[in-house]
Design a binder for these strands. Structure first.
Lengths: 204, 204
DNA sequence: TTTGACAGGTCAACAGCGTTTACATATACC
DNA sequence: GGTATATGTAAACGCTGTTGACCTGTCAAA
């Protein structure tokens, strides 16, 4: 508190200071990414919206992609579907989440970023998150000899459904009976998780 | 043949002419995309490699993405997995193709473009092809009441496997016994294709 | 042969991007 | 007060895909 609030009481000086500007940039970027998507928002646009110089984005976040990463990290855009909930419901939770996304469920930021999913920046960030937030913990959670294979297959189904949704709006999937579709996706996920030894018992 | 070959016999004039330049650009672009990926190759680089002015790319192909589209169209990068082969083997063919891709099978151009799949240009081109070359014909081929749903699910599994491959190299999947994995993917695809009425017989 | 039209090719610029560098300024400590 | 140091600024860099104005060679008609 040893910092004088303003140099005399002026109220609209744009709050110099590391934390304040960082927050301002983050808030503006998040708002703009949500309303316009990632690729459509340039660094200069973010800076201008935040009332801040362009160079500060790179000063504080390294790059535009770094800014995005920070937003995703803070915001918890990637739900903790694996850790939160009963283990035996895992496949069901994943299936419901996946189909829910088909029906437009999710935070505005999630939905908006889905539309920008083609962008290389998002792609690389998502890739890192996919591994760290889905495949790796899922593999650990599953355990067993081929845990990583099962986890990768689950990830494949989830990603695939998401991708089909983005490609053609997945009109057919969305038009179909939701419970039936969820059941089918659940069956797919359970098949991904099924032990190999159990499904091919004549194998060594 | 009424065109004099060269204005006196000179041999290294760079073959002026619409078709010739078009071909030259296509060949250079294909070679460069194959060896370096799509995003890493700029218009100027293509032009320079083809010994041609940059502006001609846009003159003849509208845009860089248009050039890519033309290459994909001519090259048949998207295999006709659905039409070619016995109907009853469809799922097996798709499964083997999918796993084959995991193991680095495919034309150099295919493999290279896979690495660039994050690029928005590729994304949009691929999206069109996915619908026109996979989902739509597959739905027609399948027929039945929920053909489009089954086709979308198949596309989801195939896309998902492809995507996981790109994300983390799919080391786990590649390390796993190939036949066993193919069998599992085949089972997934068959589950996608299975009638809804048959799988939930207690439903209406 | 001269003229004119025109397809084909060239050049330089445009507007935008993310990023960086050199500089100015305000803050905090000695 | 003086000075080191954080913070903010302005301008440029190099790159991208793309475009419009301008040559130029070729061919056809006069």
């Amino acid at each position: 508190m040893e910092r004088p609030d303003e140099t005399g009481g002026g109220a609209e000086a744009p709050t110099r200071g590391r934390e304040a500007t960082r927050e301002r940039i983050l808030a503006s970027a998040k708002a703009l990414f949500t309303s316009e998507g990632y690729g459509a928002v340039s660094s200069r646009k973010i800076a201008s919206h935040a009332g801040v110089n362009v160079a500060l984005i790179n000063r504080y976040f390294g790059s535009k992609a770094g800014l995005l990463t920070e937003i995703l990290r803070e915001d918890g855009v990637f739900p903790r579907l694996i850790e939160d909930g009963a283990p035996e419901d895992l496949a069901e939770r994943l299936a419901e989440h996946s189909v829910g996304r088909l029906h437009g469920e999710g935070t505005p930021l999630q939905l908006s970023l889905d539309d920008s999913a083609g962008d290389p920046d998002l792609q690389s960030v998502y890739q890192g998150r996919l591994k760290n937030a889905l495949i790796d913990p899922l593999a650990v959670y599953l355990g067993g000899p081929h845990a990583r294979v099962h986890a990768s297959l689950v990830a494949a189904v989830l990603l695939g459904v998401g991708r089909v949704r983005r490609v053609e709006g997945a009109t057919a999937l969305r038009a179909h009976d939701r419970e039936q579709l969820t059941g089918r996706v659940l069956a797919l996920l359970e098949l991904c998780l099924k032990d190999f030894d159990a499904s091919e018992p004549d194998q060594d």
